[in-house]
Design a protein around this nucleic acid. Structure first.
Lengths: 260, 260
DNA sequence: CAGTGGTCTAGACCACTGG
DNA sequence: CAGTGGTCTAGACCACTGC
């Protein structure tokens, strides 16, 4: 309604020579405004954002337009709608599904009876990024990174060996102790302690054989084939914030995937 | 236009003692009507379905309601919307992404330079379903199934060994010859020749070591770890129509997955 | 140009939650 | 009961396609 609407600017055809029209519908602009609010911390994980009506008033658009923006954000798991209650910022904590990105399941599908994983931090140290790690994290070779190694066990059987690398700067102060003491998903700790929220990830999966140290930690023979799961996790803006390499023992578990 | 609209019936609260309200909004009922049209073959793969306006008239609802139904079907990859042209029934054929369900990628990501896979049918025979296969395909033990074995190669390197099992009845007439002669994805052949359209699938992935016959077919040593990918593919109505077990060589390729 | 899907609005009403 | 998200409608207009 208001003729001056400084926050909503249509980006369409700013210059005639633009080859890509880059037409952006209103609801996408609203979507990115909401995303800015998430990124800036205006609305924090597990909190509720304003109602659709309030947001419509704030951005001077109709409720339907806000709705479509929120629909997309909910589809991307950034927001969670709860009828009658409101719309909430998604979080890796207090999510009844404990590990959102861990696709390893017990073969009998019952993730309940298995109980929570036992976690043991093996190591956590600061070092300089190799070329490969730097590339994955969009850093420069030699930049400071934290390296963490841990083992996850189910029913006292070591099942997952993980090495992970984090850019040192946003995770300043992360120690093995801090990791050991924290109960809950690691990504939940990243949210609450460091304000880093993992939004999506890509994985590359291979079959490999373990080396000696890996055999020791997982208590297996060197002929046991393992799943190698290399993950890059991203925050907002597609910024990579974690490289993780997991070795999964698949005797009693399997990596579960749904295709559409 | 007809005032009697027998096809649209609200299912809500048919009996007061129903514990689950089972409230189904209009657009979901429209969605399932459209799905019936797909399943019955009224609209066939790659064809266009009627325009939103036409469907709205047919079902006596507004365009917006039809739109929301189609939105969900498009999100599930059953339909494809093309602005200015119409809405089309998705197909495994003539889909520029050749293998929609195959997540194995060359390590350098360039699926183009690699070219299409060379395919060799090793075997295709009819046999009786084991208990395990029967369970996966929702058949009874001993029912007739077709078993196919084939090898896919990239750049003349055998990379994938696949065994697959199909219920014999819907696939009557499928032979090794038919499979060899067909150029294009197997699921495209299933669509055009047998009217079976695969809609979604579930995979269980493990790391394994090959047995002797597998070594021979893939030309590898018995110590080469392989990805075991066990897939059940479903048609409409969540009816399982294929069990497939792939062994992937992951020296130069990896299984790629996106997490949200 | 007509026909398609895509966006945006305004308003009415429904379903669910919690005080 | 008020407040939230969810559904449905009708109508206007925009963007894209192909004739």
């Amino acid at each position: 309604m208001n003729s001056a609407s400084p926050s909503v600017v249509d980006l369409k055809v700013s210059s005639p020579e633009s080859v890509t029209p880059a037409f952006s519908p209103l609801y996408r602009q609203i979507k990115s405004l909401i995303m800015q609010g998430l990124q800036s911390g205006e609305w924090r994980p597990s909190e509720s954002i304003p109602s659709e009506m309030d947001l419509a008033a704030r951005y001077h658009v109709s409720q339907g337009t806000v709705r479509k923006a929120i629909d997309e954000l909910a589809a991307e798991n950034l927001l969670i709608r709860r009828q009658g209650k409101g719309t909430f910022v998604a979080t890796h904590a207090e999510h009844h599904v404990q590990y959102r990105f861990l696709k390893l399941m017990p073969d009998n599908g019952d993730t309940q009876s298995e109980g929570p994983a036992q976690r043991e931090i093996i190591d956590c140290k600061k070092l300089r990024a190799s070329a490969e790690i730097a590339r994955a994290l969009a850093l420069r070779t030699g930049d400071s990174v934290l390296q963490v190694r841990r083992v996850l066990s189910f029913a006292d059987t070591p099942t997952i060996l993980e090495d992970l690398w984090l850019p040192a700067n946003p995770f300043k102060g992360l120690t093995a102790e801090r990791l050991s003491q924290y109960h809950g998903p690691m990504y939940a700790l990243f949210e609450t302690e460091f304000g880093v929220r993992m939004v999506r990830a890509e994985e590359k999966i291979r079959a490999v054989l373990p080396d000696e140290s890996q055999c020791t930690l997982l208590k297996i023979k060197p002929t046991t084939p393992l799943l190698s799961v290399e993950r890059v996790a991203y925050t907002y803006n597609d910024a990579p914030m974690e490289l993780r390499r997991g070795l999964y023992l698949t005797d009693t578990h399997h990596y579960h995937n749904e295709l559409n």
